[in-house]
Design a protein around this nucleic acid. Structure first.
Length: 575
DNA sequence: AATTCGTCCTGC
DNA sequence: TCAGGCAGGACGAATT
């Protein structure tokens, strides 16, 4: 790499060749400027390029390329993830001229988790066991197809924002895994012991679990009943005269019997033990860090999924185990009522935006006279976004339609399109998948002249289901775009904060993260930043600024508040 | 014996 | 949990 070519290195495509890894440098227009073999270490190459030219790295799949860089202590500012972007452009209704891109089915490979290598053994039956192509020439060709599709797209500014945010999210997901969430094992253990009781030395259930089980068995008059088998438990309940159809908590709660309370208690304890008990702690927390695998766009709406450790379902009960390192703090922030705020913005609904002024949108819905209580406001708004038709929520919808006609028209239209078999698109251009072949068959059968009552009912049911899906897709998907933009902008701001002094730095999360604030957790509308104490206030401001910036980047001048619940948790212990 | 299915519960 | 969207994980039961 010559020094003179560096300033023109707007994009650097990396990939494998027959001789090893090589890189092709493109200028802003996409013209090829340079091609170099990466003779030495890939990490050193990237570190030098990043310092000299700060290009946007173009690669097949972020976990494949970035995990090793992070291990070597190298971060990059920007990338273009060909696999994730391919999936967006392939399906987006904003992209019309993309026959070549859609024909490049080798890029349709599913998500490749940055799991340990042995995970590949389980993918032998997948169409492309190696994941997306990592050959340099393939990457260059796909990148050209994607640039062309973007250039041709309508609303291409939005689509470009989505592409950039999606790729930034891929970097963040890899960094979140590398950094991990600070987890206090002793605090977790104390919670378990308090709630579940002491573990008997010889094995067996913890004390409180055993006690609850014994009380259930006594009340049901069956001293050897297995409470963990749903069919057996159901039969025992019936024998005791408790005529439930399931053993779920909400149904049990309707009956009055001495076995109910201890059974509900048993289920609560058994759940904690099996999902997040000592075995979980042993398996998922290493060196004081919980490191789940995040899967950007793992959900069809664009939300992230996770795999391993149940990162997206951490019970509130265990939040107390999330603790900053000594000398560090956690900045914890979530957006209040993200989805209805996003709906107000994308529909340009001035009344709903007015109700969204301030910290509590539901209070605003009460204040403007739409409904009488905060609880009604919440259930009505959720029903509007999820497609409720009956009950309290369904009954309140006409009032929402009168008060917020633009917002309700947006979700009602999305539902109608889905019911008819159409696709819907988020604010930035992510498009829902088309209906499945089986859905089409059910619908055709129901519409046929000789359709039975059952056929018609099944078709109606399928149409309604899909309408609720597309109704929710536009809101959930756009909310995910807002959150992704928030994350990406926050990451950029955090990178601009100065490193802390060596003397302040704790042995935190490895060489990349030990001296600066870094993201540690993300869950749909919540982020946690782990930061040296000295930077906590600056981080909190960066989190707020990024939220405001995300609103502007997506929705421009149409102002909707995105207020945060934000707190700074300092470490309890000081070393 | 291994894999898939169904139930239940956690999160947003 | 009266209803209505998107998920993952554990476990036992059913299936192959």
């Amino acid at each position: 790499m010559t020094a003179s070519s560096a300033p023109e290195a707007t994009w650097v495509v990396v990939g494998r060749t027959s001789d090893g890894i090589a890189a092709i440098t493109l200028d802003a227009a996409g013209a090829q400027r340079d091609r170099v073999a990466v003779d030495g270490g890939f990490a050193e190459f990237v570190r030098d390029m990043e310092r000299d030219a700060a290009p946007r790295w173009v690669w097949s799949d972020t976990p494949t390329w970035y995990a090793a860089l992070l291990d070597a202590g190298v971060r990059v500012a920007r990338c273009h993830d060909l696999r994730l972007v391919h999936a967006i452009l392939r399906d987006s209704s904003l992209v019309s001229e993309a026959a070549e891109l859609r024909a490049a089915v080798q890029w349709d490979a599913g998500a490749v988790a940055d799991a340990p290598p042995e995970a590949a053994l389980f993918e032998l039956e997948a169409p492309d066991p190696a994941g997306p192509p990592d050959l340099l020439e393939e990457a260059v060709a796909e990148f050209a197809r994607q640039r062309e599709a973007l250039a041709q797209a309508s609303a291409s500014a939005r689509l470009r924002l989505l592409v950039a945010a999606e790729s930034a999210g891929a970097l963040i997901a890899a960094e979140l895994r590398a950094a991990g969430l600070p987890w206090d094992v002793a605090a977790h253990d104390a919670i378990l012991t308090t709630v579940l009781g002491e573990r008997p030395p010889g094995g067996g259930p913890p004390a409180h679990v055993q006690e609850a089980a014994d009380r259930v068995r006594a009340a049901l008059g069956d001293p050897v009943l297995s409470l963990d088998s749903q069919p057996k438990l159901l039969r025992a309940l019936h024998r005791a005269g408790i005529m439930v159809e399931s053993t779920s908590r909400w149904e049990l709660a309707r009956h009055d019997h001495p076995a109910i309370a201890p059974l509900v208690e048993y289920k609560r304890l058994a759940r904690l033990l099996s999902a997040n008990g000592w075995a979980w702690l042993e398996e998922w927390v290493r060196d004081g860090r919980f490191r789940p695998v995040y899967v950007p766009a793992g959900v069809v709406t664009g939300r992230w999924a996770s795999s391993g450790g149940g990162a997206l379902q951490l019970p509130r009960q265990l939040r107390a185990a999330v603790r900053a390192d000594p000398g560090w703090a956690l900045v914890v922030a979530d957006v209040a009522q993200l989805e209805p705020r996003v709906l107000a913005a994308m529909a340009h609904d001035r009344s709903l935006a007015q109700a969204a002024r301030g910290a509590d949108l539901y209070a605003g819905v009460v204040a403007d006279g739409t409904v009488g209580s905060r609880a009604d406001a919440k259930v009505a708004m959720l029903g509007a976004m999820y497609g409720a038709t009956t009950g309290d929520s369904g009954r309140l919808l006409p009032r929402l339609r009168r008060a917020y006609p633009a917002a309700m028209a947006l979700v009602d239209d999305a539902a109608r399109v889905g019911e008819r078999g159409g696709v819907v698109t988020t604010w930035l251009g992510r498009t829902s998948p088309p209906p499945s072949a089986s859905w089409m068959r059910v619908r055709q059968k129901g519409a046929a002249a000789e359709a039975s009552v059952a056929d018609e009912s099944r078709a109606r049911r399928a149409a309604g289901d899909r309408g609720r899906f597309t109704r929710n897709f536009v809101v959930q998907g756009t909310a995910a775009e807002w959150a992704l933009t928030w994350l990406a902008d926050l990451r950029r701001r955090l990178a601009e904060l100065p490193l802390v002094d060596e003397r302040d730095a704790a042995p935190a999360s490895g060489p990349v993260f030990d001296r600066r604030p870094h993201l540690a957790f993300f869950l749909h509308d919540e982020i946690i930043v782990h930061t040296p104490l000295s930077h906590a206030e600056a981080v909190a401001q960066a989190v707020r600024d990024a939220a405001a910036a995300a609103g502007r980047m997506l929705f421009g001048a149409f102002a909707v508040d995105f207020p945060l619940d934000l707190r700074i948790d300092e470490s309890a212990a000081k070393s």
